[in-house]
């Protein structure tokens, strides 16, 4: 029972790590550029989760000063994550733009094929 309890207590971290690995793996091993971008997003998301989880306290309230509330959630991570999300979005947007460009120029989204096209051009 203890392990389940521990798992439960740390479930956010665990999920974050799992998500991170999934994202990582997707980013590196998938040929499709779009899938790569998805992997990137998954990875980012996992990190957001992780951050927020750090700041979260069981039973804590939103950090707004009110009567009778003793436990607040740490506001710093949440605030940071807002910035992080913005960055992530801009990265994604930029990556998508690049994907569009690539598709225009190579006519495919498969990284292998792009490489093949490129080296053919070189040769």
């Amino acid at each position: 029972m203890v392990i389940i309890e521990r798992l439960y207590m740390n479930i956010y971290y665990l999920v974050a790590v799992i998500l991170f690995i999934i994202g990582f793996h997707t980013m590196l091993t998938h040929n499709n550029l779009l899938k790569k971008i998805m992997g990137m997003n998954i990875m980012d998301t996992s990190l957001f989760l992780f951050f927020v989880a750090i700041g979260y306290i069981h039973g804590g309230q939103a950090p707004i000063l009110r009567e009778g509330v003793m436990q607040y959630v740490n506001p710093v991570p949440s605030a940071l994550i807002l910035t992080g999300i913005v960055i992530s979005v801009s990265f994604t947007a930029f990556a998508l733009a690049l994907v569009v460009l690539l598709h225009k120029q190579y006519g495919t989204l498969d990284a292998d094929k792009i490489i093949a096209l490129r080296s053919k051009r070189h040769a």
């Binding site: 203890v2 392990i3 521990r6 798992l7 207590m9 740390n10 971290y13 665990l14 790590v17 799992i18 991170f20 690995i21 990582f24 793996h25 590196l28």
Partner: peptide, 19 residues
């Protein structure tokens, strides 16, 4: 009970570093 969660996380992360 002998396995802490921390070590699990660490093991996962180390795996990731290797990755």
């Amino acid at each position: 009970q002998n396995v802490t969660l921390g070590s699990l996380v660490v093991a996962a992360v180390m795996l990731m570093v290797l990755l």
